[in-house]
Computed example of a mutant assay.
Amino acid sequence: MKISYECGPCFLRQAREALDLSTDDESLKMEIMGDIFKYLSTNFDENTNSNGTGSHMHRMIREKTGCYDPYYKEKIEGNEIALKYLPEVKRILEKDDSLENYVKIAIIGNILDFGAFTLDDDIESVIRDSLKKDLTVKDIEEFEQSLKTNDRVLYLVDNTGEIVFDKLLLEKIKEYDVDITIAVKSVPILNDATRKEALDAGLDEFGEIVEIGCGTVGYVDSEISDEFREIFDSHRFIISKGMGNYEGLSEIDLSSKDIYFLLCAKCNTISRDIGVNLHDMLLFKK
């Protein structure tokens, strides 16, 4: 997906947060922010790829500060928030164990995203409000048919914290006798889930965990490993979580795939691209 003018302030907000989490050296922050200004000044236009630009920016910060995983504490916090709400979520599912409700819970988990929200946002109140909402777009009948007609699925996870709720949907998917392959980032970026966080959350109980071969913001087709490309190409049925994966996958030919996007539209650029309202929760087939 290509950027809009609103992506500029978002890039800079993410850069500031990542710098503050990576180093206390004010002079170094000034130097790196200057480098980011220079990079954006020559790479920010209507043809700019959002995921590639964000990934490059975070790599610049990591390489110059030496901080490998700046969102380490925030990832722990994300899991703690998700675990806090897990009993309430399970009570909801006990009352209504429909596939649609499991999908809704997994999408609510997508709210735990420090790439879209600021560190000061009241994410807990957003979760509480979202539990009361319905899905705006719900291709649930097609989704269930895909579960019934495919014997395996590739599940692209997104954020730490979110994966606590993904686990519930993965458990539901197993009821359809579908083999699950769970794809995670190979290198930490933002609060995205890597193999460590996926194992900590117990996702390996429901499928094989594989790495995409890079640490990018969302999916960047040019940066995945050859090993993961084989996995991706061999799967017809794909479940993609989150905005970052949508941004990247929407730029490639998916005509041979049975692919579903599960996300919360957390920014105006994404909302306009899909044709929905801000904060709408979506399950749609591409």
Rank of each mutant, 00 (worst) to 15 (best):
G213L: 11
D200W: 09
T53H: 11
I238W: 11
V164Q: 01
S256I: 01
I107F: 11
I252M: 13
I231Q: 11
F261C: 10
G213K: 10
S130F: 07
E6C: 07
G248I: 09
S146F: 03
N47P: 02
I189H: 03
N49E: 14
A193E: 07
L154D: 06
Y219Q: 09
A82I: 04
T65G: 00
Y219C: 07
T181I: 05
I3A: 05
S130V: 08
I238R: 05
N51Q: 12
F228I: 05
K2P: 02
S55C: 12
E80N: 13
N191I: 04
V153N: 00
V276K: 08
D121M: 08
V217S: 14
R152G: 02
Q14I: 09
C10L: 03
A82L: 04
A201V: 14
E197K: 00
D258C: 04
D158I: 13
E63N: 14
L169P: 00
N43A: 10
E17C: 02
K2H: 12
E88P: 01
T194M: 08
L40F: 02
K73R: 12
H279T: 06
L282C: 13
D226L: 13
D258T: 03
T48I: 10
Y39N: 08
K38A: 10
E230H: 12
I180W: 01
D280W: 02
S98P: 05
V153G: 01
V89P: 11
Y219M: 13
L263A: 05
M1Y: 11
D139H: 09
I163C: 03
K73P: 00
N51A: 15
Y102D: 03
V217T: 11
L249N: 02
L135G: 04
Y246W: 09
P188V: 03
K172A: 01
I127T: 04
L156Y: 01
G52N: 14
H56R: 14
A106F: 06
S130N: 14
R272H: 09
K148P: 01
L168T: 05
R128V: 15
G248K: 01
E223W: 06
N159W: 02
D20C: 09
E94S: 14
I182E: 00
D134R: 13
L154Q: 05
K257E: 14
R91A: 15
A106H: 05
E211Q: 10
E26I: 09
S255G: 15
K167L: 08
E63A: 09
L170Y: 02
N277D: 15
K185P: 03
S146D: 03
E77Y: 13
S4T: 15
V137T: 06
S27R: 12
L254I: 04
Y39L: 12
A198I: 05
D129F: 04
E230I: 13
H279E: 09
K73D: 10
A198F: 07
V276H: 06
A193T: 07
D280L: 05
L262Q: 07
I238F: 13
D200A: 09
D113W: 00
T23L: 02
E124A: 15
D158G: 05
S250G: 11
E46W: 14
M243F: 08
L169C: 03
T149D: 10
D166W: 10
